[in-house]
Write a protein that binds this DNA or RNA. Structure first.
Lengths: 349, 349
DNA sequence: TGTGCCTGAGCAACCGTTTGCGCAGATGCA
DNA sequence: TGCATCTGCGCAAACGGTTGCTCAGGCACA
């Protein structure tokens, strides 16, 4: 007489309900319960009467499948790891969102970790993800040479890089089209009459930095010009300000700054202001990414837009395809950028 | 002769290396390997020679512990679920970061999910987390009456609410001190001479909305005034603009807007601008949260600051304590707010 | 030399599911 | 009636670790 009558509060299960409990309640074997609850009733040829009884028992007992046990048996965890420099970074948060939505649609959950671009942090996070037998890895902190990434590839887990590429191994990647984006930005500045342009670049061993710098030099070179640059280790407003200040001190006739991303661009604007100049009147600034609220900054930021949501979603769907078909050959997908002209750029004086 | 000689590339393991493989390599029983790899060599009284041999075997084979199998046996997954309305929301991203850092320090990984404030999404995410046997839940989408939350509590998993409280059950929570924050904001407006103040509030059945509205009315009431308000279903700039427009149309002599959060505040500023008025000259606006870059908006936002990182970190550490001691009685912690006065508020004309 | 204790490791059950195979009864067909 | 086939479900072996218990050998001590 331990059935729950309507109106009674079912006793809170001290230990979670297992298949065995449901089987006992329904008077069948656990394997039968398993088949019914996995919608293999037809394949297992279960009577619809039995099926109904089992489902009712599961419902009334509050059975919830133990994914841990299932994963141990089947090898499928429905977990995917995602590694970003900082979830609190607006640009990355958008990517995370895109990836999360795509994964959810396929029933996967997302283990998310921030590394602060620290290799040790990356190592412990990835190690935990591989230990948890995540079925795939979305890796957004790749360096040109990256031991953590090498480990993951070695472990045989499907990996898709995003944002930053790497020559570490044969692995798929979803990247901004850095060259095209940079070309759009530089040509915009050139068309405004700028000739003294500097580049506040990202970290030196990150693929985006390398590509953007090359495109910067190439595009200027094609116009018979040369540009100067500085690398930043951390892509923060403070770094952007510090480096821009250095560049302005050293090359006072600079009229435009191309920043490696929007945060560096904000720092550049701070430095311009601190030097007594005005953006865009004296110095123009172009950012990269078009992070949220770029249009609300003062001045509103001219920047190269990368669709963050799409990039994340694309990376996730590529990963899912690789999980399904591990033999799939790696591919690199470039996300097309778009120049968004706002208030931080103006004609050169 | 299948030992790896220095310089040789170890063959990539087709199937992950198991304890059994290590045991075979070291010539001992799996239980001995398990004890050594869990640093229970002393408790298990293993010779340091044996210990060394086992560790060397594990290293050379590239053994990685299978957390799934371990979790099945021990019941500990080292996983925590976190549910937010939208990871791409700046305010929430900061909280996520704080929680993630605290959890990492204790060896936990974070399963993160966005629900868009949709109950069905919340249900499937939480269901997946409970299925994965997450050891605890950080729940940031609570409604006053919340069936998903009720389910989780029912399942017996430790839960800590953040941002939004709920009367759904006895459960710990880390919340902004909404009343104090609101009082600070309203008193600031009053001291600037504002008398016609409206409130663009959040969703009606969210605790923060209720508390802020009460404090809004109370503080105005204490000054012998009354304020008007509108609830928003989604806390977006668009909603903020729409509702503010309604309020301005209906009460054209409004001189100040208190917004339920910064995004609504941005929308309010848009509406003010669209109506041909200027913020803060004609109408002042106060936000809530002090989300990143609030100081860079135009005008820079006067707002009530909640330390997002601290709030997330506090919620996580409270959850960890509850996991260790499930008998712990629930507690609610209020995070003290701070008024940050910037450019969006000015004296009433 | 006999007894008892300590040392160092192995044995085997168990965690909760999944799944290939087996089996008894029923049914169909000759 | 005899035999083959089908139906509906049970059996038991995994999956990879963890852990209480056992046990053989060695040593100290009387």
């Amino acid at each position: 007489m331990d059935k729950t009558r309507p109106g009674e509060i079912p006793p809170r299960p001290a230990r979670p309900v297992t298949l065995r409990d449901v089987a006992r309640e329904a008077g069948v074997h656990v394997s039968t319960v398993s088949r019914v609850l996995n919608d293999q009733a037809s394949a297992g040829r279960i009577t619809s009467e039995t099926e109904g009884r089992i489902k009712e028992a599961a419902r009334s007992l509050g059975y919830r499948r133990n994914s841990v046990a299932r994963a141990l048996r089947t090898g499928r965890t429905l977990l995917v790891g995602m590694v970003v420099p900082d979830v609190a970074n607006l640009y990355q948060a958008g990517i995370t969102r895109g990836a999360g939505d795509v994964l959810l649609a396929d029933g996967y959950s997302l283990i998310l970790a921030s590394t602060d671009d620290n290799l040790d942090h990356a190592h412990s996070h990835v190690s935990a993800m591989l230990g948890a037998r995540a079925e795939g890895l979305l890796y957004g902190v790749a360096r040109e040479s990256d031991t953590v990434l090498a480990d993951a590839i070695d472990a045989g887990v499907p990996v898709v890089l995003f944002n930053r590429g790497s020559s570490q191994g044969p692995v798929s990647a979803v990247l901004p089209d850095d060259r095209m984006g940079t070309r759009l930005a530089v040509e915009h500045l050139l068309s405004l009459g700028h000739r003294k342009i500097v580049h506040v670049a990202g970290p030196e061993d990150v693929s985006s930095t390398v590509n953007r710098l090359e495109a910067f030099d190439d595009t200027l070179g094609a116009a018979g010009l040369a540009g100067l640059h500085r690398f930043s280790e951390r892509q923060t407003e403070e770094e952007g300000e510090r480096l821009t200040r250095q560049l302005l001190d050293q090359y006072p006739d600079t009229t435009a700054v191309l920043a490696g991303n929007d945060r560096l661009a904000l720092g550049a604007i701070d430095a311009i202001r601190a030097s007594g100049r005005t953006c865009p009147v004296d110095v123009s600034v172009v950012g990269f990414n078009d992070m949220p609220y770029s249009e609300r900054f003062s001045p509103a930021l001219t920047t190269v837009r990368i669709s963050q949501y799409d990039l994340g979603a694309l990376a996730a769907s590529l990963l899912l395809k690789t999980i399904v078909d591990p033999g799939r050959s790696p591919e690199t997908r470039l996300v097309a950028p778009e120049l968004v002209v706002r208030q931080s750029t103006a004609a050169a004086r």
